[in-house]
Every structure is written in structure tokens, then in C-alpha cells.
Simulated scan of single mutants.
Amino acid sequence: MHFATSALAFVASAVAVKAATVTFWTLDDAQRTVHFTGNPGCAQIDPVTVNGEKNTTVEFPDRWVGNFYAVQDGQANTPGMLGEVNFSGWNGLTYFDVSAIVNPNDHDNVKQMWPKGSLNPMSGCDVFPCNNAYWLPDDVQTKTTNECDIITTLGSGSTGLSFAEQT
């Protein structure tokens, strides 16, 4: 009987784990390739091609930590503005931010990030520069959410969404 109870608990815990996702929403007509860099020990994620025809959702392994950047077709594969994520981090939270550390002049690729369900908090800028991105190594700009589905915008243009004042 003990084995059956343990097996049921294992199955229940497996069902409770929901895959983490990032949905890429392209705001212009450019086609881009999104490249992923996981921290040591994290699974490799293959690059994906995205464009303005439809949103593209990428599923991440549980506890994946790393970043991604976008490159427009015809451009050199050089990291620019980063989207950084830590799924199932401390206290089970998702940590995320838009980081300008690598290339603060990349204003046409990774732009904004927010939780899919609540739309709050938001990291990044509708128009760069702004005070809601990670600009310096000691910036306190990383956002957290209980959600595991994140929206990331790419490109020039605007979502038309209004976000609450960020703190």
C-alpha cells in the first residue's frame, strides 16, 4: 500500500509541474532568429525564427536559467538587448528582465517582457532608453512573478498596452 501511495504522489507532483514558456510577439515586419544561452547545467534550446505573422511560443525546461537575444535576418549573430529568465527560481518564482548590459544601443530586438496572465510587472522599454531595464551590473531591475508564462516583444512599434507604474 505504501508503494501505491508514493506512486500516486509522484504522478500528482508530475502533473502539477507546468511547462514554462516565453511567447515572442513581433511588433514590426522584420523576421528574426531568437538565440538562447542557458546557464551551465541548463538544457540547450535551439534557435527559433519569429516574425509578425503570428506569435511564437517556446517551451522551456523546468528550472531553466539563462537569456535570449534576437537577430534580424541579414544581420550578424551578435548579442544585443537580452531577455533574461529564471524559471522556478527561489521560492518557486519566475525572475525576468530586459538587460542592456551587452549592447544598450540595440533598440529594435528584445524590447519588453511581462507575465502573460497579469501583465504586471513589466520590464523593458516601449521607447529606449527608459528607467525600466537592467543597464548596469548593480541595477535593481529584475522582476518576479508567480506565473511561468512570459510575453516578450521584439522590434519597433508598440503593443498599445498600458502598464502600471513600475517601481
Rank of each mutant, 00 (worst) to 15 (best):
D106K: 11
G83D: 08
Y134F: 15
V71E: 07
S88N: 13
Q72K: 14
N120C: 13
G117V: 06
M113Y: 05
N120D: 15
A14L: 12
G83W: 03
E53K: 08
Y95P: 04
P121N: 09
A70R: 02
V110I: 15
D138W: 12
F36Y: 08
P104R: 09
T94S: 09
D108A: 10
I150D: 00
G89Q: 02
A70E: 04
D97G: 06
A100V: 12
A164V: 07
V102R: 12
L8T: 07
D29C: 06
N55K: 08
N103L: 05
Q31K: 15
D46T: 07
Q31F: 03
K18Q: 06
V48S: 06
V127D: 11
L8G: 03
W25R: 14
S162V: 15
N86M: 07
G92Q: 08
T152P: 00
C125P: 14
T21C: 04
L136E: 06
D73H: 14
G89E: 08
Q112K: 09
D108F: 01
N109W: 00
P61Y: 03
C130W: 14
K116P: 03
E84H: 03
P79Q: 02
T26H: 00
V98H: 01
I151K: 04
P47W: 04
I150C: 02
L93W: 06
T33A: 08
T21F: 05
V50S: 05
G89W: 10
T78R: 14
F68L: 14
W64S: 05
A76Q: 11
F24T: 06
A19S: 09
A76G: 02
T5E: 10
Q75D: 15
F68V: 03
D46Y: 03
V58R: 07
P40M: 10
P61W: 05
P104A: 13
H35G: 03
T159H: 13
P115V: 11
F68Q: 03
T56G: 10
N55Y: 00
F10S: 09
L119W: 10
D126R: 09
G160M: 09
N131H: 13
N51C: 06
V11P: 07
A133P: 09
A19H: 10
V34E: 04
N132F: 07
